[in-house]
Amino acid sequence: MHFIAKEIDQYLNQQDYVDTAVVPLLQLDLSTNGMKPSAGASEYLQTLTALLEKQFKGRILLLPPVSYAKIANRQRIADELSEELQQTGFKHVFYLTTDAEWRTIESLKNVLWLPAIPIEDMDQSFKKSVMEDQLRQVLPLFMKEWSHHS
């Protein structure tokens, strides 16, 4: 489900079934040279999470991307987010990101780091098949997590 008011109504009624939150973590780089790769990474991450939401609509709540500056303290973001998510009923939380710095943060579980693929120049059908390949790499990680603790 998306983080929009209408679907949150549905979520609140179906909390037993929607037990997984997905948080995209997005680094903003607005320097002249960094802007384009940063925008590309954002496009990639949001396309991927949208596809993921379509596949698992009834079990995940896709939160809007958490965007932060290059210099942001990742540890602090991690702590604050986990604290916020702790008071919810989610049994599983996944963080998806293209920012390699998250790999050094030990306290977050289930951080899926994916190298961003520049998809902006691909034509529609090629982009689709690339993104579906990407999705196929992520899906088993969710299935595995669910089958472990369900």
Binding site: Y17, Q55, F56, K57, G58, R59
Partner: peptide
């Protein structure tokens, strides 16, 4: 689209 909660 699954008739339960809309997964694929």
């Amino acid at each position: 689209v699954c008739k339960h909660l809309g997964c694929t």
